[in-house]
Write a protein that binds this DNA or RNA. Sequence first.
DNA 1: GTGTGATATTTTGTATGCAGAATTCATAGT
DNA 2: ACTATGAATTCTGCATACAAAATATCACAC
Lengths: 215, 215
Amino acid sequence: MPIERRPLREQIREELLSRLDRGDFAAGTDINEASLAAELGVSRTPLREALITLAGEGVLESNQGRGFRFAPVSRKEFRELCEIVAALESLALDCSDAAHLRGIAPELLRLAQEFPDRVAEQQVIERHDDEWHDLLLSGCRNERLLDLITSVKAGMRRYAHLLAGDETPLEREAAEHRRVAELLVDGDLAKASQALRDNWVNGMERMMSRIPADG
Amino acid sequence: MPIERRPLREQIREELLSRLDRGDFAAGTDINEASLAAELGVSRTPLREALITLAGEGVLESNQGRGFRFAPVSRKEFRELCEIVAALESLALDCSDAAHLRGIAPELLRLAQEFPDRVAEQQVIERHDDEWHDLLLSGCRNERLLDLITSVKAGMRRYAHLLAGDETPLEREAAEHRRVAELLVDGDLAKASQALRDNWVNGMERMMSRIPADG
DNA sequence: GTGTGATATTTTGTATGCAGAATTCATAGT
DNA sequence: ACTATGAATTCTGCATACAAAATATCACAC
């Protein structure tokens, strides 16, 4: 088996993102490079490289002389991010191979149907949701677009843990996923694309009340 | 006057991008960190930070142990980037304040009309084009989207110098800008948005022949 | 008690140092 | 001549060191 050989900065980035998913970091808090580097068991250099990458993705902010901090959350920004991802995923669907979409449509439907059945912890649900979207876009031939979507979604991870606790939205999320899948089974790409956009817009509305009001 | 105080990595990033516009770097060539740092008069640390940022924007590629290199150009990638920017700018227009758009429409028209008059060097033309698009999107209330557009366009700068030499495309570009501006003067946002998308698609087609065929 | 200014401490931003991987070059064998 | 092998070199990736900026501490005047 090929042993793992990739830059520390990437591993650090992923570790920080997964901690963000777990809600370990409060939005708006400063990062102390020395202590975080010590905690991760690495030096400040690759840590700073990871922080710079995350800042480029909008997860962090940087101020001259003041270092990095987790970007504060706001309803305005969340709305903006949802609008962007809705447009990008919709475009990705339009760029996808129609035959491939028909092929995966049943699997998408199956995944959407078993969605709310499992009473699982938050992180499992989120992973499930991500997998559904990943599979949906797996036929997109625009590689740059897929990278961009991944990057923008990283910026949304700050909002993930705010969803914890309430199950109601998930049922509607699953219903919307079913709707998209059914349209793909029918081969109606245009309507599926529209349903996907609606899914993001509705998901955004559902989240709004959970985000602290903008300052 | 406020003296300039911002991280070296940002200044380095901009310097590298402007050199890229001038065609100083051939696509696909490796970067030697030590010599480039010496040439810029900085150490490798902030240079590497800039390189990592640029890699995140798709300007550079990085391979473990092999450092950074300018990402090779390809028709496929250029098409992908144009599709993305077309969707993003179109979305930005949809997010814009209608009143503001009506306000700037005459200025956009004026700029588009004087476009091909000046027989100027390539870089002036490009700046002019960028300014037009910037003004067009100046009323967009989605700040994250504007940042994202800037970032994606940075990734397109590798293709800028390929445009040099031929003036024919510019006339058509100007005509399409006029079309967008006229539709905005009329207040027909939907059609303007569509015309903007068409502008990117057509611009893409015009560039295609100038990009080496994909390997 | 509050504000102000000098000083000490912390923390970032940048430079330098070092180990190991990748590449190059030379040499030997066929 | 061509390939293979190994030493020498170059370069990256990461760690450490240092200087300057920012922040905290404290004394003191009001």
